[in-house]
Write a protein that binds this DNA or RNA. Structure first.
Length: 908
RNA sequence: GGGUUGGUAGUCUAGUCCGGUUAUGACACCUCCUUGACAUGGAGGAGGCCGGCGGUUCAAAUCCGCCCCAACCCA
């Protein structure tokens, strides 16, 4: 071992390079003889056109701890990585980098350019990730835009279609008129914008005699007959031509008379029904709302609930259609001004005032979204919600509470999943339609990936009507339709045309063992993945789900670019060792948010230094190869340490299996620091130096190597460094043994060694604890008297079980004579109080407990001579129900200390 | 607006499912100690109406109800 402090920079870089060079963590299929020994992590692919941010690092550290830990349990771990470059973000990036427009190219050409541009970003992203030394298998990566993944996406679409799980329907879509593309709900956000409210007068159509009889009260009738107009408040008068109905809240007494009547839309003169619906917001405006095609989400709901007409007044570029008559061709802004002005001329504009309100905008350009009607493909979900719920139940959720989110999501489903996007780039639908009968013709699975815009359909004539002309589908898939297939992509799911069935290249990987995911995006990502993979394979795609929280800043605020409180991984990397960051991340309770705190990283750094220093000491005390000592000959203290360490190894294993990172980390840290370094090592080093104690040398070696392995999943670099320095040579490489391949050139990483099996050594746990407590009491004795810790003590007498530890106590605390007492030392004791054991007394005496307490408080009690019975408040309490508290005064020579489990008398 | 989760010393947290009277640990703070791995160390100390109000109970951080605050999800 090198002398001096731990040089994290050099060590970490060295091992990161070595792990990459040697493919240390590459998935070795040959190692898997039973699917149960393969462990697959389905990592969600990040968008690589943005920067690596600290949240990525945090989530990946947790995955990596699981990966490294699981390898040490003897499983072959598949830890792949994906890059999501199939999205608007990547396309925009490509356009701006190359100064082109995607419309200038075919899809294939443009996607090729996207791949080229993204490749640079991917390299940077990869380099960044690799500077954290994650045990990702860099031979197993994919890009969501690559042809192989396009093929998987299109296969998925065709498979669901053939299963009858997909349908095509003309329905509303969220549309950005600026980008001229459909976008998904998750790509929109709320924005405060200035606008105007307009009070507009609508006429009531005289429809006497046409009303259904008996539907309203007499009074309502007569009132309606007298009303000839009403007021609508709207921020969007340009939608008047799209108006298809007027709504009134069922509880709106004042306007109830209008329900069932028809309204005449000003300027455009068409008639629309007046309908009652509780989705009307009675607080805003007049309480009467016009429903258009489509002003907002509620309009869509009304359209579907009440089977209303469609009047599409705004086209894909945000201009008015022929439905708008003389306003056709105007932009919606121009049309608004023109219509308002004409309303004013007509006297129909009653009022106009400025307001600020929230509007739904496209997150990328800030333009208010429109709702257009378009042909869409949908994945049917509503008919299978029971199955999806059951699938969710079959997975282990870490933390468990996240299952309730899944449950609520399933139960709250109201829409099938729209997978069509009217973007001009992306992964195309492999579909053509017969020009004559609109029959959908799917591509042949063997031909995928295809682009209908440039490829021919697989048939010459329509199988339905014989028509020979086809129209290619020009929509592309929602990116989630691809992102939800990662388990299938990772397992190599494909269509085998010869066998006529779906196959998997690595069937042993599916279902995947764990799916990591941030809790902010589980609904639209994880859930979709479960649903899609379940439909394709009939299996739940994950055995378990590991949900991580968000990284917050030091003030527990969410990190965001606009607030400017983001932490850049590069900066952290410059300031702290990676292992310190890993220590920090491992301090999280799974699912909880974790604030980034430098002191957390500093604590990690201190632990690294402690581990390094302790290792140097162990190295200096022990020979190159572990001494050959029969475990039966070990001293009591050594047996005690190894037995305690057995317990710690089992505890850490259990906690990591349950993804209770922080419990594993904290317990191991304090056991190592407190029990090993402060208690054991202090004693052992004296024994080795003074007596050349073989038992201690053996124990130091065994325990120390075990500590390195227990730390290895969390402190990956330093544990590798020290282990390689001290133990690698003496441990037979497992990999070469099994495979017989070029063993000499392959090095054995600590992360591919086995987790410590219990030594099974028996020890007197209580005597060890008591001995440590006695040492603690003596330290305190010296400390309180401001004596150096190596002050000699003449005689120490111990009343308590420290059998076998006498010599250790003597040596470490510099005690001349240590004797153990058979009988309690000369003590005068005064009763100072009675402690009740409430868990027994409570249920036994119930409401009398306060009386008993009062009796004790006032001294109105009696303890029997043998101390077995306590008489108080008319009850006789037995010995199990109370403890007598005494103040003990030692009357003999010297000073008495109280330790946990022992009385100690010091004579200096 | 609906749902979910959380609120415990100055800070971060354990404990809450399954109630038991001295509430866990770390950081920061205060005092003392340079002994041979480590002062990024060691020994000790102080610091809490467990978000608020009510209820159940012999007993509540823990169970129930209402309220306040925060985050996230859905609208």
């Amino acid at each position: 071992m090198p002398s001096g402090p731990y040089d994290a920079d050099a060590v970490e870089e060295k091992w990161q390079q070595r792990w990459l060079d040697e493919d240390t963590y590459a998935y070795q299929e040959s190692e898997v003889d039973d699917p149960d020994t393969a462990f697959a992590i389905d990592t969600p692919p990040p968008t690589v056109s943005g920067n690596l941010h600290w949240g990525h690092v945090y989530g990946t550290i947790l995955q990596d701890i699981v990966a490294r830990f699981t390898r040490m349990q003897g499983e072959e771990v598949f830890y792949p990585f994906g890059y999501d470059d199939n999205g608007i973000a990547s396309e925009r990036l490509t356009e701006s980098e190359l100064d082109i427009r995607h419309q200038e190219f075919t899809r294939r050409e443009f996607q090729q350019k996207c791949r080229e541009v993204c490749a640079q970003y991917e390299d940077e992203f990869t380099e960044n990730l690799q500077s954290f030394g994650f045990s990702i298998d860099w031979d197993n990566t994919y890009r969501t835009i690559e042809p192989r993944v396009q093929r998987t996406s299109q296969l998925s679409f065709i498979d669901l279609y053939e299963q009858g799980k997909e349908y095509r329907k003309r329905a509303p879509a969220i549309w950005c008129p600026e980008c001229e593309t459909a976008i998904s709900q998750v790509e929109t956000e709320d924005d405060e914008q200035h606008s105007h409210f307009h009070d507009i007068e609508f006429g009531v159509v005289d429809s006497e005699g046409q009303r259904p009889s008996g539907s309203r009260s007499e009074t309502g009738d007569s009132e309606a007959a007298g009303q000839e107009e009403f007021t609508i408040s709207t921020t969007r008068p340009e939608l008047l031509p799209a108006c298809v109905a007027v709504f009134v809240h069922p509880d709106d007494e004042a306007n109830q008379n209008l329900v069932g009547e028809a309204a005449r839309v000003p300027l455009f003169d068409h008639e629309v029904p007046i309908i009652a619906d509780e989705r009307v917001d009675m607080e805003t405006g007049s309480g009467l709302v016009m429903c258009c095609t489509f002003g907002d989400q509620t309009d869509i709901e009304w359209y579907q609930a009440h089977d209303l007409d469609l009047r599409v007044a705004i086209d894909e570029s945000g201009h008015l259609t022929d439905v708008a008559g003389e306003y056709e061709g105007m932009s919606s802004d121009d049309a608004r001004e023109a219509i308002v002005s004409d309303l004013e001329d007509d006297g129909a504009l009653l009022d106009r005032w400025e307001i600020t309100h929230t509007v739904n905008v496209h997150e990328r350009c800030g333009t208010g979204v429109e709702f257009l009607v378009a042909d869409q493909w949908y994945v049917e979900m509503l008919d299978s919600t029971d199955e999806y719920l059951e699938a969710g139940r079959e997975m282990d959720w870490y933390p468990e509470k996240m299952f309730s989110r899944y449950k609520h999501w399933i139960e709250g489903l109201q829409w099938d999943w729209c997978i069509s996007r009217q973007r001009s780039s992306g992964i195309p639908f492999p579909v053509w339609y017969c020009e004559d009968c609109d029959e959908a013709v799917m591509a042949d699975k063997a031909d995928l990936p295809v682009d209908p815009l440039s490829d021919d359909p697989p048939v010459d004539a329509c199988p339905e009507c014989g028509g020979e002309e086809f129209v290619p589908e020009d929509d592309v898939f929602d990116t989630w339709a691809t992102s939800s297939l990662t388990p299938l992509i990772n397992a190599g799911w494909d269509w085998d045309d010869e066998q006529g069935e779906f196959t998997m290249e690595n069937p042993e990987l599916f279902p995947m063992d764990v799916r990591p995911q941030g809790h902010d995006i589980i609904s639209f990502w994880l859930f979709h993945t479960v649903v899609k993979c379940y439909e394709h394979t009939g299996e739940v795609p994950f055995d378990s789900v590991m949900i991580n929280g968000m990284v917050l800043d030091e003030d527990r605020k969410k990190m965001s670019k606009s607030v400017g409180n983001v932490v850049s991984p590069e900066t952290v990397r410059e300031e702290f060792p990676v292992d310190a960051a890993r220590f920090w991340a491992a301090g999280s309770s799974i699912g909880d948010d974790l604030p980034y705190q430098e002191k957390g990283l500093r604590a990690g750094e201190k632990l690294l230094q402690k581990l390094w220093n302790a290792s140097k000491l162990v190295d200096s005390l022990t020979p190159e190869t572990a001494p050959d000592v029969d475990e039966a000959d070990l001293s009591a203290l050594d047996r005690w340490l190894l037995a305690e360490l057995d317990g710690e190894a089992a505890f850490v294993r259990e906690k990591l299996e349950n993804r209770e990172f922080s419990k594993a980390r904290d317990s191991l840290r304090s056991f190592f620091w407190g029990t090993f370094c402060d208690d054991y090592l202090e004693i052992a080093k004296e024994r080795v130096r003074e007596d050349d104690d073989e038992s201690a040398k053996y124990t130091l070696t065994v325990a120390h190597e075990r500590f390195l392995k227990l730390f290895a999943p969390v402190l990956s670099h330093i544990s590798e460094e020290i282990w390689q320095e001290m133990y690698a040579e003496s441990e037979a490489p497992r990999a070469s043994e099994a495979s017989g391949e070029a063993a000499s050139s392959e090095f054995q990483s600590i992360h591919r060694t086995a987790w410590p099996e219990p030594t099974g050594i028996d020890a007197d746990h209580d005597a060890g604890e008591t001995a440590m407590a006695v040492v603690g009491a003596l330290r305190r004795y010296k400390s309180e008297r401001q004596l150096p810790l190596n002050t000699e003590l003449d005689t120490v007498s111990v009343y308590g079980n420290v059998d076998g530890f006498e010599r250790d106590i003597r040596n470490v605390m510099h005690v001349e004579t240590l004797e153990t007492l058979e009988a309690e030392p000369e003590i005068e004791s005064v009763v100072t109080g009675i402690d009740l054991d409430y868990s027994v007394v409570g249920p036994e005496y119930g409401a009398d407990v306060p009386d008993i307490e009062d009796g004790i408080e006032n001294g109105e009690y009696e303890i029997s001579d043998d101390g077995e019975t306590l008489s108080v408040a008319g009850h006789e309490l037995s010995t199990a129900e109370f403890t007598v508290e005494r103040e003990r005064r030692y009357t003999g020579e010297g000073e008495m200390l109280e330790a946990d489990g022992a009385l100690v008398i010091v004579q200096q």
